[in-house]
Design a protein around this nucleic acid. Sequence first.
DNA 1: GTCTCCGTTTGGAGCACACAAACAATTTAG
DNA 2: CTAAATTGTTTGTGTGCTCCAAACGGAGAC
Lengths: 255, 255
Amino acid sequence: MTPKTNPRTIQAVGITLEVIDYLHEHDRARVTEIADALDRSKGTIHCHLATLLEKEHVVKDGDDYQLSLRYLELGERVKDRLGIYDVVTDELSDLAEQSNELVQFATEEHGKGVYLYKKGGERAVQTASSIGKREYLHCTSLGKSILAHYPRERVEAIIDRHGLPGYTPNTTTSSTELFEELETIRDRGYAFDDEEKIEGLRCVAAPVKAGEDEVLGAVSISGPSSRMTGDRYREELPDMVSRSANVIEINAKFS
Amino acid sequence: MTPKTNPRTIQAVGITLEVIDYLHEHDRARVTEIADALDRSKGTIHCHLATLLEKEHVVKDGDDYQLSLRYLELGERVKDRLGIYDVVTDELSDLAEQSNELVQFATEEHGKGVYLYKKGGERAVQTASSIGKREYLHCTSLGKSILAHYPRERVEAIIDRHGLPGYTPNTTTSSTELFEELETIRDRGYAFDDEEKIEGLRCVAAPVKAGEDEVLGAVSISGPSSRMTGDRYREELPDMVSRSANVIEINAKFS
DNA sequence: GTCTCCGTTTGGAGCACACAAACAATTTAG
DNA sequence: CTAAATTGTTTGTGTGCTCCAAACGGAGAC
């Protein structure tokens, strides 16, 4: 498919990024701990941390290292760049109140869905996902509603990269099946997730588009299967997410 | 003073961090632009960006590169780690409403003040500072109220590193003078900024402490000198920030 | 006291990185 | 429309940087 001679990559930088990821996942860590985890010598990790410290990307507290507040700054900047963040938060607050369920907004990056905002209604389910979390696209309503509006070759590239892992009996793991489903979703305007990622959880999602081709992200409502039934699941909630997605679309144009 | 043999640092990592900083400051950039700015060859920057891309720390849009949403995730995690973020936002909302001025919260890192939250009251002044922004400590009320509770040698280390640059005629640029002022602040419990950073802007700040030694940060109120006069400037507002700082202190213990 | 575990430093060998130059693909000039 | 000028990308190459292993020094543990 893609002959793609591997682009030359820099080992030292790779190690540092692994160190950053490790600190991200463990909050704080010491030299030996990281060295063991990444299978590198203590001296190597020490040098990398010293570099990160000099550039103020980490903070040293005794012998513990943690990511510095610089990442707060970087995160804020990335968030501002999105442009639609404020619109999304406003609209999703309303939607959470209306539906009394968990509502979320996600966008695609590097072939995965990235959750940008979530807001729980009064009786909303708790989920592990939070801001910045990454998730497969093929097994969530958010993901499928985004993929439905991508050109076929882009979807194929994503499948090539990440595959179609199955989580429950309902997960779509065949690409031909997925493409059929995406077509239905594109025509209908919204996507369902009937316990495809987590058993007992049903979701509905609608895409937020900018123009004809570009997809900014998607809005979803999630709830326990016991509450997501009949007309509510098949009509009311789809209407609600579609309306919300539309509101965001319109407001996004003016920001 | 500090013989401090320079800890060995990794050049390649340094370059990548400079690339990240450049992308942070310019939102999006191309290879040649970055190469020129950092005075490196195109090929070099290309390799670094390729590495960042593979590790999904940047996104490529045509020939433009930008920081990926991964930094949103990293930023959220760093924010969560602080632990007092929610307490601060709640309390500062109240304080902004009460005072009708700009209120801010900052903490110290690498010898600079880092703004974590700001909230404008109804008539609040606009400032350039926003979340994550770094500022010298010696010329702001926030900074001075933090420094006042640091041991002398720690303050000296910070002065050694960053100096005492002057911004207005009122800026304290002498270290002996600064130490005298810090003593007064420590005894009094709050700090003033009388147009020491920006002409026409006065501020009051009080520290948020955890135990005897540790300083979590500081709360400040800022406003135009014309409104910050007499008893309001000298008594009312200091009382308000002190009370707010206290509320945060107490709530921080339980989180 | 010794022992063991840290973090840090050092020396050295191998190869990875940064450069320059060639290449390809667009865009601009004319 | 062609030619020239910029792009981004690739490749080859030498140097000097990185990574490792081992030694060092300090902090607890017992």
